[in-house]
Design a protein around this nucleic acid. Structure first.
Length: 906
DNA sequence: TCTCTGCAAAGAGGA
């Protein structure tokens, strides 16, 4: 039987005489059934005692195939020859992580911290892998090479490579693959499968095998290996895939490594076996070694978060016997050790960063790793929840009926399926999702992009064909990984002047306005216009502040205050002074909105970096296509005066190669500090635009990530900020509450017209409506009952209110409904055709008439009501009429909501 | 049961 649960205590190591001779063993006491059962002892025999050395109280332990055994008169359990022992199985280690861990645990840590930068061997390696996959799919070699090199145009250009030389090199590598494939092994194509995604709940592993041949893993390496044996860590990587296949009952006995630089031409007797393919036996002992190494890694990661020590546990390099002088990462290793004052086998270079920076690094490192655990918890739901639970959780579309797999351009596949009419989920067009044959964990699953999700059909694009029966939200670690590299870059590579400001050692500096260059408004040029923006003092001041900032400027933009317009004007002013500007924001939508404003002001010399589906249709014409001639592509990116991308994209390999004078970040109050660093690391100066009285960053774990850099800096340096104080959206009556509660009464309507707008302006006769639905702000109490996150009666009443507005002559397109919960959004959505959405999704937009459904009855317990910033967003979306539907009694229990009620009923 | 947007990911190498 399998035993699984948290460790209660770890016993002493012992050596026991058995009928097999002297054997090591060690007892570990666990609370089985994930902590629900009574503690029992498990005896770990033989080499599993090495895993016991890493075990600590509180870690989760899984032992499979145990047998009952008696020790000191107590019934316990023990490992058998069939047992696997897994520490922290919920921590999903990537196979490439194990590979570098086995080389040197510190290399694993460094790769995680600093990311893999853009470099030629990796780009070339990726191309050769793609070509390998194409060959297995039967694509013509020359066509594949030309296509794959073309696809990597931008990256190759940035690295200074010409198309022909890369094609030649890829051709040489591919020849080895082709030669091997030609040796008869490919006669039956069915025994091949390229790019196989594997997730292992038992071993806590995930990864993607290059190929499977007759159920055995094949790994492609674009290097040379003149030894008879494959490199050890390459074998470890292939063995990881073998292990995961083993879990699926495939039981591979060999693994193959294909070294593509080994060609027949190089063959010479002295250097040994230069054939590209090297097979090796995957024995039980080797697989156990791989599991033990994974356990050591998982234990280190556990200690980094759970050890009571002041600083996170970090590998030193002494754990392995690798020689530092041979290591390519030696310099990076020493620099990191030196800057963070870490113990390391390679030694240290340079002076440690000041204490406050090290504390900052440690705090955020821990916070990001906590976020990683939350992502792993999302993975766990893939196998712990039934498909029905997943669907009920809105995290999967199930019950799909395959309706065709078609090969399209670039050797990709278009998967179609019919979906049940009522199926809803948080999946949307353009999302990356896990497409599977019904079981994403032990069945066949591929990562793909959702192309179409309307009506009764789903269309997904993937590298490999899949019988599309289920589509799951994919819990990607990419934002976690990019946060870590952004943190690394900010603290270890950031310049000192920048860090002085970030760490409170110096006030942000601003140049004398007299130094503004000619052509810009201001004292330097008497003929220039008097102001950047002549009808709004705060907006003009914001542009001036941003233009004069020598470190940073902070623009605080409450709802409707013309934030986007100001951003566009600021960028134009910065470019006019010769600056190269990076425009960024958390969401694609905000990036495109800012870009739209910029283009509306007549500035079109922009480059949008982002995925095809992420970029809005009307910005496609300025989108950077990465495919093409290397030099032309690199020039396109390097020469653009304005580059626009999400902060996630700013952390990508390509944009990490770029430099800017100024980074301007919109929606900065919704970004974590590392998320903000990803953008501002790229520039000398930065401008943050946001409103910390609206929604904060979305993070799963409550920690340092919950506060934005924008908020921290605006508190620390109020004089480096400007608040836009005139709003162009809401009537006087609507804005009053938000202004008083969130902006100290400083928010005012920009014009009398804005202040005085009413429903009558829409051609509606207010007398045709019930009094509580008119007058700018109203309150309706339907006496409903909250049921989970829904309130059916309230939903009915909301729909009736919407109907009343429509009947009175309001255009349905001018009405929006906002609810705090997705469940209530769905409930209301069933009853009306107008736009219904959550508060979070409504941020950034507005409607003439807004109806808010509060859902809560009885009391206002629950995190969603405790964050008043969310209420601020909900109440500031309406221009002419805001109608709040909710339970008056519940609101009365909380002073804030009581004031809200009083205002709404006045 | 609170809210949820980004992201293909994995990709190399010498004594």
């Amino acid at each position: 039987m399998n035993l699984r649960g948290p460790i209660v205590s770890v016993g002493e190591a012992r050596t026991v005489s058995t009928s097999y001779g002297e054997r090591d063993c060690r007892e570990v006491r666990v609370r089985p059934d994930r902590g629900a059962g009574e503690p029992v002892d498990v005896t770990l025999w033989g080499k599993w005692t090495e895993t016991a050395e890493h075990a600590e109280t509180g870690m989760e332990l899984l032992v499979t195939e145990t047998e009952e055994d008696e020790y000191r008169g107590e019934v316990g359990y023990a490992t058998t020859d069939e047992s696997w022992v897994v520490l922290e199985p919920d921590f999903l280690v990537d196979v490439t992580g194990i590979r570098s861990w086995v080389q040197c645990p510190r290399m694993y840590y460094l790769n995680k911290l600093s990311g893999i930068p853009l470099n030629y061997p990796v780009v070339k390696g990726t191309i050769v892998h793609e070509v390998f996959g194409d060959l297995l799919r039967g694509v013509d070699l020359e066509a594949s090479i030309a296509d794959r090199v073309d696809e990597a145009g931008l990256e190759l250009g940035l690295l200074g490579y010409e198309r022909e030389e890369v094609e030649d090199e890829v051709r040489r590598n591919a020849a080895a693959v082709e030669g091997w494939l030609a040796q008869g092994t490919l006669s039956d194509e069915d025994t091949w499968r390229s790019e196989f995604t594997l997730i292992s709940p038992t071993f806590g592993l995930k990864g993607r095998a290059d190929a499977l041949r007759r159920g055995t893993p094949v790994e492609l390496k674009t290097g040379k290996n003149t030894k008879r044996e494959p490199r050890f860590h390459d074998k470890v990587q292939a063995a990881c895939y073998a292990l995961m296949l083993d879990e699926r009952g495939v039981d591979p006995d060999i693994g193959t490594l294909l070294y593509t630089k080994n060609t027949a031409l190089d063959r010479n007797e002295e250097s040994g076996d230069l054939a590209p393919a090297k097979e090796f036996t995957v024995g039980r002992g080797f697989l156990e070694f791989v599991v033990r190494e994974r356990n050591a890694l998982a234990a280190m990661e556990w200690r980094a978060l759970n050890d009571p020590g002041e600083r996170p546990t970090v590998p030193t390099g002494y754990e392995a016997d690798a020689t530092c002088s041979y290591c390519f990462e030696q310099d990076a290793c020493m620099v990191v050790s030196g800057r963070l004052d870490q113990e390391s086998k390679a030694g240290q270079i340079g002076t440690p960063v000041p204490d406050e920076e090290r504390d900052y690094f440690d705090r955020f490192y821990t916070a990001i790793e906590e976020e990683r655990r939350e992502t792993h918890a999302e993975y766990r739901k893939l196998w712990e929840q039934t498909p029905e639970e997943r669907a009920a959780d809105d995290r999967a579309l199930i019950g799909l009926e395959p309706a065709g797999q078609t090969e399209i351009d670039d050797a990709r596949w278009e998967l179609r399926a019919r979906k049940p009419g009522d199926a809803v989920s948080k999946l949307r067009e353009g999302d990356v999702a896990l497409a599977s044959d019904g079981d994403p964990v032990s069945g066949h699953a591929e990562l793909g992009r959702i192309v179409e999700l309307g009506g009764d059909e789903v269309v997904v694009e993937a590298d490999e064909p899949v019988e599309l029966r289920r589509l799951d939200v994919y819990p990607s670690e990419i934002s976690v990984d990019r946060s870590l590299t952004a943190l690394h870059d900010a603290v270890l590579k950031g310049n000192e002047a920048r860090k002085d400001v970030l760490f409170g050692r110096r006030e942000p500096a601003f140049r004398d306005p007299a130094d503004r260059s000619t052509g810009s408004p201001g004292p330097a040029d008497p003929d220039a216009p008097e102001a950047y923006i002549d009808n709004n003092d705060a907006q003009n001041e914001a542009v001036e502040l941003a233009v004069d900032a020598e470190d940073c400027a902070l623009i605080h933009g409450p709802p409707g205050t013309g934030k986007t317009y100001t951003i566009a004007r600021t960028i134009r002013a910065l470019v006019a002074e010769g600056n190269r500007v990076l425009l960024s924001a958390f969401t694609n939508r905000a990036v495109d909105n800012a870009l739209e404003a910029l283009r509306d002001q007549g500035f079109d010399d922009v480059l949008r970096v982002g995925t095809e589906t992420g970029v809005r249709d009307d910005m496609r014409d300025v989108r950077l296509v990465q495919r093409g001639d290397p030099n032309a592509k690199a020039a396109e990116l390097r020469d653009a005066p304005v580059v626009a991308a999400t902060t996630a994209a700013c952390g990508s390999r390509v944009l990490r190669e770029c430099e800017f004078d100024v980074a301007l970040v919109d929606e900065a109050s919704q970004l974590t500090e590392p998320g903000t660093h990803a953008a501002i690391n790229r520039a000398d100066r930065f401008v943050l635009v946001g409103d910390h009285e609206q929604l904060p960053p979305v993070v799963r774990a409550e920690n340092d990530l919950s506060t934005s850099l924008f908020e921290r800096l605006i508190d620390a340096y109020p004089e480096a900020s400007v608040m836009l104080d005139r709003q162009y959206r809401m009537s006087q009556r609507i804005q009053a509450f938000a202004s008083a509660e969130f902006y100290d009464g400083a928010l005012r309507p920009a014009t009398p017209e804005v202040a005085g707008q009413t429903l009558a302006d829409l051609g509606v006769d207010p007398d045709a409506l019930a009094p509580e639905l008119t007058g700018g702000v109203g309150f309706v109490d339907p006496a409903g009952e909250r049921d989970g996150n829904r309130n059916v009666r309230e939903a009915e009443r909301v729909a009736a209110v919407v109907d009343a507005y429509v009947a009175a002559g309001v255009d349905p397109d001018d009405i929006g409904v906002i609810a705090p919960f997705r469940a209530q959004v769905a409930e209301i959505g069933r009853r009306t055709d107008v736009t219904v959405d959550t508060v979070d999704r409504f941020q950034g937009s507005s409607k003439e008439v807004i109806v808010v459904s509060l859902v809560a009855t009885g009391d206002l317990d629950g995190p969603i009501f405790e964050d008043h910033r969310r209420v601020n967003v909900a109440l500031t979306r309406a221009k002419k009429q805001l109608t709040i539907v909710g339970d008056a009694d519940a609101l009365g229990f909380d002073p804030f909501y009581a004031r809200l009620l009083e205002w709404a009923r006045r």
